[in-house]
């Protein structure tokens, strides 16, 4: 009874506080479990702005809610693949991120991404890549190729996993066969299909949750994301992450100011805030993905600042590329290949 009373009181308090749209508030709409609580505490202490975080679980949900309007959010964090849609639908306001004081900290390769030319709209949040994880105690040859998955060496056969993500798998195969992701070249896509179908019997699984399987040495290779590769290495020191030299795809999430934001100044303050090295370091410390801010390594935990999964080695930077969402026609062919692969 007492608990119920307290909860009711808390509920009333919540309702009242959400009614009073006082100055100094900020509503951030972000992926769940992605915002560092320490970062928010620091921001609130430094600026006096109270931050409310609301979670979403997919780009589609976020887009649907923001598109409908009346959402009450100021900032959102879409992925690069969806950002052009947000822009073309006029959901984003131009915050002139490139003129913010802390923009000077943004690494030069992140200042002019294809999906936000000139970087006026979006402040960098975190990013990662699609590559290969290999247990080097099983195979110690060259791991910087998708050949690990598609033309696997003898030692790895039957110990390979592939992330069940259509776009990542097919785009990686396209890159491996000398094409570009989202290519509409039917001849090439046919080769991709044959390659994948031929390789599949050599795989063990197409699944998520690989970290524990590498830890238990059930798997020896996987097409996967860098963040998980990093966490797997902390559990099994033989795990290495390969950056395929034939090309690999990158993803990035970026903070954008919504057109119908109520707290525009507060939102811009936040965008500037996260581009400071010490704050970007906090972000990465929590979510364990790389950020795009020069000097943030100094504020990351030791194991992260030196991790080759997080800090891309110089020689592999050039091979990584961003790919937009494929056109509907290509998407259809992808789906056809994917269906065949699932059989």
């Amino acid at each position: 009874m007492k608990l119920a009373y307290q909860s009711l009181l808390a509920g009333v308090a919540l309702t009242v506080s959400s009614l009073a749209l006082a100055a100094g508030e900020l509503n951030l709409y972000n992926w769940g479990n992605y915002t560092s609580p320490k970062l928010i505490e620091k921001f609130e202490a430094e600026t006096g702005i109270k931050v409310t975080i609301t979670d979403y679980d997919s780009n589609e949900t976020a887009l649907a809610k923001v598109r409908a309007g009346g959402h009450g959010f100021d900032l959102a964090v879409p992925s690069h693949s969806h950002l052009p849609i947000w822009m073309s639908e006029g959901l984003i306001a131009n915050a002139r991120v490139d003129q913010m004081p802390n923009f000077k900290n943004v690494a030069k390769e992140w200042r002019n991404p294809d999906w936000d030319p000139g970087r006026q709209y979006s402040a960098p949040w975190q990013w990662g890549s699609v590559g290969v994880m290999v247990d080097t105690s099983v195979y110690n040859g060259d791991i910087n190729t998708f050949g690990i998955i598609l033309d696997p060496p003898e030692e790895l056969i039957g110990k390979i996993n592939v992330a069940p993500e259509m776009n990542d798998v097919i785009s990686s195969a396209l890159l491996y066969l000398g094409g570009e992701a989202c290519s509409g070249d039917k001849e090439l896509l046919r080769k991709v299909r044959d390659k994948l179908v031929e390789a599949k019997p050599k795989w063990k699984s197409m699944d998520y949750g690989v970290i524990e399987k590498f830890a238990g040495r059930d798997l020896a290779a996987s097409l996967y994301w860098n963040g998980a590769a990093f966490r797997a290495r902390l559990k099994n020191p033989d795990v290495r992450y390969g950056y395929p030299v034939e090309g690999y795809s990158l993803w990035a999430d970026a903070v954008v100011l919504l057109k119908d934001a109520k707290n525009v100044e507060e939102a811009k303050t936040f965008m500037n805030f996260i581009m400071a090295p010490e704050n970007a370091g906090l972000m990465s410390e929590f979510a364990r993905y790389a950020n795009s801010i020069v000097g943030s390594e100094a504020f990351m935990p030791e194991d992260m600042a030196t991790a080759p999964e997080v800090v891309v080695p110089e020689e592999f930077i050039g091979a990584g590329k961003f790919y937009p969402t494929c056109s509907p026609e290509v998407q259809k062919m992808y789906t056809a290949i994917w269906t065949e692969l699932q059989k």
Partner: peptide, 10 residues
């Protein structure tokens, strides 16, 4: 919905 939001990461 909080739990749903956790699913993207490990």
């Amino acid at each position: 919905t909080y739990m749903l939001g956790q699913l993207r990461r490990s």
